[in-house]
Amino acid sequence: MADNRAGIDSTTKEFIIHRDLHGRVAYELGTAILRGDFVPGSSLPREVELMERFGVSRTVLREALRTLTSKGMIQSRPKIGTRVRPREAWNLLDADMLHWYSRVAPPMHFALKLQEMREMIEPYAAALATRNHDAHALGKLEKAHRAMVAAQNVDEWVRADLEFHLCVLAACSNELLVPLGVLIERTLEGQLRLNAKRAEVFNASLAEHTAVFTAIVARDAEAARRAMSDLLGVTRARIEG
């Protein structure tokens, strides 16, 4: 396999490797905490032990620890060491954290938590989109819906399904909802793929998506809210089934 980093100057290559190392350590320590290997209130091993465990320098380790500190997971104090913070301090609405959590949480537990979040947000977002969408947003939503109609396999369906839900959030014209879509994108894709595989056919929920799309086009807020609730009800039934 060709080295994709060929041609990069040595200083840049060293930076990339350094960044990759501290990202790996942050991921492994972060998932260990999320998994419960280090419970809230407990101390992490000393720096020397962690450096040996991960085979990294003190600089790399400290960058990884700063990453976890910024996500609310740990706190370091002189003469006390590094302790795991209470769970309520963890920023699970961080893209990395949410992705890490999806990797270690019991699958059913995580799927239902994500589903609860969607049920609180998406029906209202669909209603809001009926009032706030412009021609550009509607065009993107229509394109996503057409891709769902044309999908020939699970992969095509999941890509179009994910884009459809992100387009609904974008059509709200609320700048705070768009980052939310980006935040849950990776974990939502996994849930959509699982739901498609559990259905009788991968596009079994096309009619429910079409109802959402039709209501948004018609600017019928109540119909859009109800259609999205119905769609999410189908999703929940597949998760629990």
Rank of each mutant, 00 (worst) to 15 (best):
A211C: 03
R19Y: 10
I33H: 02
L180M: 15
P179D: 04
R5A: 07
G36Y: 09
F15C: 14
L206M: 09
V39F: 09
A199S: 13
E119M: 02
A224T: 00
R35F: 11
G139S: 05
S70A: 14
R53L: 12
H165K: 03
E116S: 14
V84K: 05
E63S: 14
L176V: 13
L68I: 08
L92I: 06
L44F: 03
L141C: 11
W157I: 06
I216N: 00
M97C: 07
L180F: 15
A227F: 00
R19W: 06
E122V: 02
R35P: 04
K140G: 14
Q115F: 13
E208G: 03
A223N: 03
A26Q: 11
R236C: 03
A221F: 04
I121G: 01
R118H: 13
L29Y: 05
V25F: 08
A126I: 00
V234D: 01
G23T: 12
D230Y: 07
K79P: 07
S10T: 14
Q152S: 15
L162E: 08
V212I: 11
V60N: 04
R238P: 01
E142C: 04
H165Y: 03
T210Q: 14
I8H: 08
N91V: 05
E119D: 09
I80D: 06
H99A: 13
D9S: 09
L232A: 00
A6V: 12
E116Q: 15
R159Q: 09
G81L: 09
F110C: 03
A6N: 11
F213R: 00
V217D: 01
M148R: 03
H136Q: 14
T59N: 13
Q75T: 15
S102A: 12
A129L: 04
V234H: 06
W157C: 09
A150I: 10
I16M: 14
D230F: 02
G233A: 07
T214R: 01
A196P: 01
S102W: 03
